[in-house]
Amino acid sequence: MKELGLYLGCVIPTEQYGYEMSIREVLPKFDIELVDLEESTCCGAPLRNVNMFTTMYLSARNMALCEKKGIDLYAPCPICHLGLTEAKESLEENPELKDKINSKLEEEDLQYEGSTELYHTLDLLHDEIGLDEIEDQVEEPLDDLTFAAHYGCNTIRPNDLDRPDDSENPQKLEELMETIGIGTEDYPEKLDCCGGQVISDHNESALTKAGEKIEAVQDQGFDGLSTICPWGHRMLDSKQDSAADTIGESLDLPVMYYIQLLGVAMGIEQSRLGLELNLSPVDNLEAIESIEEAE
C-alpha cells in the first residue's frame, strides 16, 4: 500500500467533482491510500501573474504540509503540478529564497525541506502503477471506442520542469487508453490549448479556443475526448455548450476524464465515478449508462 497526499488544488474540489470522485474510487483499487491534506490551500500557480514570491510561498506551504506527514504528494491538476514542480526546483537551486520562505512558514510551525516527490495522474497511472497492473484490473475493455487525447498544456510543458510526459510527442495517455481497449490516434490539434487560463477575463476568446478544439476532434470522427486536466475538462466538457454557442457550431462530443473511463472499464459502479456531472453527451456512448438508468 502506497500512501499519497491527495492535493486537489482549487478547481477540482470546488467544481470538478467528477474528477475527485473517480480518483477516490479508482486509485484505492490499485493499492494506493489517499491521505487528505486538511490544511491545504491554492498552490499559488494562478498568482504567478500577480506576485511570483507568493506563488512560491503557497507551493512550498502545501508541500510542507505533505512533508509533515512524511508522504509523497499527488496533484491531479497539471497546473498545480507544474507550480509545485517549479517551486521545488527553484527552491532547490536558490537556498536563499528557501530560507526566506521557511522563515514565513515558521509562523505556522511548518518547514519546507524539498523531500516530497510529486505525482500527476498521468505518471502515477502510467509509470508508478503501470500498464500491466491496469490491464489486469480491466473487466470490460472499451473496445469499440476511438478517443482523442487532451493532455493540457502544463502536463507536458515546459519540459525543463520535469513534466509527466514529452513536450512534443506525448504518448502516455494514448497508451493508457489503449490499455483499456480504447482506440486512439494523433491529430494535428492535439497539443492545442483549451483557453482555460484566460476564461476569467477573455471569456469569448477562451470559449472560441475550446470550441475550435472540440470541433476539430469531432470532425475527425473521434467518439470522444479524454482529459486529465480539470481546467481542460471544464472548458471542453462543462462549458461545451457555451463554446458551441460562441463559435456557432453544434457540438456534441463526449468528454471524459481518463480516470472515469478507467473506472468504467474496471466495472466500477458508474454513479460512483461522477459521470452524471459530465455535461457533454457522454451517454451517447454505449458503455455509459444514462442518468435515468443510474438511478
Binding site: 482549487c10 478547481v11 474540489p13 470546488t14 467544481e15 467533482y17 491545504s40 490551500t41 491554492c42 494562478p46 498568482l47 503557497l58 462543462s238 452524471e276 456531472l277 459530465n278 455535461l279 453527451p281 457522454v282 451517454d283 442518468i291
Partner: peptide
C-alpha cells in the same frame, strides 16, 4: 479569493446533465 479563504473560488453547486 485566495487571500480570503485560500482557494481561487468557493465550492460551487453544480448541475448534472439532468
Amino acid at each position: 479569493s485566495v487571500l480570503g479563504n485560500g482557494l481561487i473560488q468557493q465550492p460551487k453547486e453544480v448541475l448534472n446533465r439532468a
